[in-house]
Each structure stands twice: as C-alpha cells, then as structure tokens.
Amino acid sequence: MGSYDVIFYILSIVSLGAALGVIFFPSPIYSALMLAITMSGLAAMFFTLEAYFLAGVQLIVYAGAVVVLFVMVLMLFDLRKESQPFSGQKISNFFKAGIIAAASMALIIPLSTVFFIRTEKTKPVTTVDLAGTLFTKYVFAFEAIGILLLVVLVGALALAKSRGGTHE
C-alpha cells in the first residue's frame, strides 16, 4: 500500500461519491456542481496514470467549458428544488434482469482478477507519442472531427435562431 495507492483510493472515492451526488441531488444546480467535482477528480486520476496532457485537457474541456455551459443554462432556467425528481415509471422485469446481469458482469470480472494478475506500471506514454500517433495514424479521424464541429456549430446556430414552433 504505497502512497501512490492511497492517492488512487482517495481520488476514486471522491469521484464516485461526486458522481452519485450528480444523480441523487434534487436541485439540478447542485448536481451540475457535483459533476464539476467528478470531472476534476477524474483529471487528478489521469495524473496518477501519468497522462498529464489528458488531465490538463480534461480540466480545460470538461470542467472548464462543458459543465460551465450546464451551470449557465441551469441558472438561466432559474429552477428551484424539483418536487419529485425521480421518474416513477415501472421498469419491466426483463429490463431489470438485464441491468443486474450487466452490472454484476462488469464488476465481477475485473474484481476477480485483481488477486491473480499483477500489472506493473510501465514507462509513461509521453505527449509527443500522443501527438505523433494522432497526426500520423489517426489523421483522417482528426479531419472528420473538424467537419463534425462545423456541423454542430451550424446546428446549434439554427436551433438558437429558431423561435421554436411553426410560425415563420
């Protein structure tokens, strides 16, 4: 149990706790702030994985842009505490069985192998390797992301401009 492991456990408890907060807080602004804490906790976990550039990007893109947009929109809606935030519709038994099966599988397999497989930390992947692979192997996907961003921009503009509804 080195200090590296202690930090990992603290960060994972903080992130998972904040993630639980996201879905269990009745007022949506509190859940948006909990999401910001989860994102920063995950950025710190990227630090423990020695993916420093990803941690910075996670802070810039997620914690600093996406969740700020969520908080801004929620504040513009000016919602107070929701009366009953949880949807009461019944979930069919078949669906419940599926969820429980998937959840248990996703947990049992990694947990069971914790005792046998011992993976050592290797030399970290530096940002230069990341950039090298990004611009040589994945350059087509990179250009496709550019087009995707353009499409999203045009779509968001059209949505914002439309008055909503059928007139003009």
């Binding site: 893109v61 842009a65 947009l69 801004m72 929109v73 513009l76 921009l153 968001a156 503009l157 914002a160």
Partner: peptide
C-alpha cells in the same frame, strides 16, 4: 449567453 458558451466549447 448559452449560444456564446456553445461556440466557446466548439
């Protein structure tokens, strides 16, 4: 405001 935030993200 939210249109500025959306174009900021992109």
């Amino acid at each position: 405001f939210y249109l500025t935030a959306i174009s900021f993200i992109l």
